[in-house]
Amino acid sequence: MTDTPLTFGSRADADDAEMALLGLIAYQELTAFEHLSSDARLSPTLVDRETLGRLAVTEFAHYEMARELIAARGLDPQEVITPFMESLDEMHRRTKPGDWYESLTKAYVIDGVAADFYALIASGLEPQIRFLLSEVKTSAVNTDWLRQRLQLAIDEHPERASRLALWGRRLLGEALTQAREIGERYDYWGSLHSAGTDTRGQEMTRLFARLVENHSRRMRELGMTA
C-alpha cells in the first residue's frame, strides 16, 4: 500500500489544524525528552545511557522548534500546548513500562506511529511546519538505534520477543485511541479533505489502516508478531 498523503480543506481550517498540530508535536516531544532522560538512568550499560541521553536532547530540540513556531505566529505557546497535556499524560499513565526493555519498545512504537502520521499529513501544511515534521522524522536516527538495541536484546534472550510483541500491540492501540480522541475533541479531523464528511471518514480509515500496517511491518522485522 502506498503512502499517499492526505490533503487539507480550506486555508482557515488548515491554519487551525496547523496550530493544533504544533501544540500536539510540542508536547509529544517534551514528554519524549522526559521519558528518554528517565530511561537513560536505568540503562544497563554506560553506552546505552549516553545514547539515550543524546536522543533525549534531540527530542528537546524538536520541542523548542515547535514552541518557537507557535510564538512566531503571535500565540502563547502555553495556551496552544496545554489542551493536549491531559490526554497525552493519561496515555502515558496507562502505558507505564515494566522494565527498561518495555521502555525502549514504547519509545520505538510511539516514535514510529508519530513519524508515519506526520508523513501522511505533511503535504498539506505550510513550509515551516513541513520542515519541522521533516526534522522530527529524522529521528529516524533515534528509531534506528532503538530498533537495533531491541534486536540485540531479543537476540540475547529470545523469550523477550513474545512479551515485547504483546506490549507493542497494547502501545499501538493506545496510540491510535489517543490520536482519534484528540482529533475528535479538537476537531482536527475536520480540516482534512474538502469533499465532505463521508470522504473525510474514508481518509481517516485509510490513514489508520496504514499506521497499523507500518507498525506490524516494524514488529515483524524484529521477529515480533504485532
Score class of each variant (00 low, 15 high):
residue 110 I to S: 12
residue 106 K to V: 01
residue 16 D to W: 00
residue 200 R to C: 09
residue 27 Y to H: 10
residue 219 M to A: 08
residue 189 W to T: 14
residue 166 L to A: 07
residue 86 E to G: 07
residue 177 T to A: 08
residue 44 P to H: 09
residue 48 D to L: 08
residue 159 E to I: 03
residue 226 A to M: 07
residue 56 A to W: 01
residue 1 M to P: 10
residue 196 G to P: 04
residue 160 R to C: 03
residue 160 R to S: 03
residue 185 R to E: 03
residue 141 V to M: 13
residue 113 V to L: 06
residue 196 G to Q: 03
residue 108 Y to I: 02
residue 60 F to W: 12
residue 32 A to W: 02
residue 64 E to V: 10
residue 17 A to I: 02
residue 65 M to I: 10
residue 51 T to Q: 13
residue 16 D to N: 13
residue 184 E to I: 02
residue 121 I to Y: 06
residue 35 H to I: 04
residue 57 V to A: 15
residue 186 Y to C: 10
residue 65 M to G: 12
residue 198 D to P: 08
residue 88 L to A: 06
residue 32 A to G: 13
residue 65 M to D: 15
residue 67 R to V: 12
residue 19 M to S: 08
residue 40 A to Q: 05
residue 125 L to E: 05
residue 162 S to T: 13
residue 211 L to G: 04
residue 137 K to D: 09
residue 61 A to E: 12
residue 71 A to C: 07
residue 179 A to W: 08
residue 153 A to G: 01
residue 204 M to F: 07
residue 48 D to P: 06
residue 9 G to L: 00
residue 16 D to P: 03
residue 196 G to S: 06
residue 123 S to A: 13
residue 221 E to R: 06
residue 214 N to I: 03
residue 83 P to Y: 00
residue 68 E to R: 04
residue 106 K to S: 10
residue 7 T to F: 08
residue 117 F to Q: 07
residue 219 M to L: 06
residue 64 E to W: 03
residue 157 H to L: 13
residue 209 A to I: 02
residue 118 Y to S: 03
residue 138 T to P: 02
residue 42 L to M: 10
residue 97 P to I: 03
residue 217 R to S: 15
residue 138 T to N: 15
residue 128 Q to T: 13
residue 89 D to V: 09
residue 61 A to K: 08
residue 148 Q to W: 13
residue 193 H to N: 15
residue 170 R to Q: 13
residue 175 A to I: 01
residue 112 G to M: 01
residue 119 A to W: 05
residue 163 R to Y: 11
residue 5 P to I: 03
residue 56 A to I: 02
residue 101 Y to W: 15
residue 40 A to M: 07
residue 36 L to H: 06
residue 94 R to T: 04
residue 86 E to P: 00
residue 138 T to F: 14
residue 53 G to H: 08
residue 81 I to N: 05
residue 99 D to N: 15
residue 209 A to W: 06
residue 151 Q to N: 12
residue 20 A to L: 14
residue 172 L to E: 11
residue 64 E to K: 10
residue 189 W to P: 11
residue 219 M to S: 05
residue 17 A to Q: 05
residue 111 D to I: 08
residue 197 T to W: 00
residue 81 I to M: 09
residue 194 S to H: 12
residue 2 T to C: 04
residue 63 Y to M: 12
residue 220 R to M: 11
residue 202 Q to D: 06
residue 105 T to C: 05
residue 168 G to P: 07
residue 74 G to F: 00
residue 126 E to W: 01
residue 75 L to C: 10
residue 4 T to P: 01
residue 120 L to P: 02
residue 151 Q to I: 06
residue 14 A to G: 04
residue 66 A to G: 12
residue 153 A to S: 11
residue 91 M to V: 02
residue 81 I to Y: 00
residue 19 M to G: 04
residue 203 E to A: 15
residue 165 A to R: 09
residue 213 E to I: 05
residue 158 P to H: 07
residue 197 T to A: 14
residue 145 W to S: 01
residue 84 F to C: 02
residue 40 A to S: 14
residue 206 R to K: 10
residue 112 G to V: 01
